[in-house]
Amino acid sequence: MFANIDLTFWVGAFLTVAIFSFLYKDNPVYKLAEHLFVGISAAYWMSVGIWTTLVPNLLCRLCPGWVNSLAGSDCLCPPASHVSGYERWIYLVPLVLGILLLMRLSPKGGWIGRWSLAFIVGITAGLNLLRYMQSDFMAQVQATMITLLPGWQGFGHFFGNLSLSLDSPLVATFSAWVVFFGTFCGLVYFFFSKEHKGWFGGASRFGIWVLMVTFGAGFGYTVMARISLLVGRFRYLFGDLIDMMNS
């Protein structure tokens, strides 16, 4: 029944139960698991950073021979990843910027790291500005400018295919109107230059309802996500028992 169980399983099981024990109340076993998680995560990220970023993206470009001689083979810096000529020396720039960034650890020389930060902020802003403008603003505005009678082929077709199936004309038309009114009324709610009275107030109140439905859907999805994780942990803890019961 409990075949293939090794030490790593028991460590994982202990830590899972230790974290779950917080649901009863805070206790030293939970604290131990929490500290282990923080410590191991930090070490893991540091090691991942070195082996997946620093070594292949910087050291293998600048001095592949040295890295390979240290490793004893060319598995870390395969020949296809080598760069030559002036391209190689361009990598001195990120090396210097990286060293400057580390100066933030120094109490007196912390300001030197601002040069690297400025580079990071500038690159990120430059990359994101255009793409957000295009994909999150223009394209999203465009996506709400939809026909309110999608696939309209006359009343005969509309009433002839009257059903609640997802691809029926009724549901498609209803969805289009919900998107149109939902977006419009949601925007009205956030428009504060006019008093929310009369038809404007009504639209604003409908906008609040749309927001509430959105938050409700978000909550439902969050519950689904958390239950999925719980299912994953239970499958880990009781996998053999579940398989035996279901076989």
Binding site: R131, Y132, Q134, S135, D136, A139, Q140, Q142, A143, T214, A217, G218, Y221, T222, M224, A225, S228
Partner: peptide, 30 residues
């Protein structure tokens, strides 16, 4: 943002439930 809308390659996704409501607005255009 950086592939679908630029290179005009169809993009699809599989995401956590928590992030699904934030990604619904991209369907079906993007």
């Amino acid at each position: 943002q950086f592939a679908g809308d630029v290179a005009h390659v169809p993009v699809a996704g599989g995401c956590t439930a928590v992030s699904a409501p934030l990604l619904y607005p991209y369907y079906p255009q993007q």
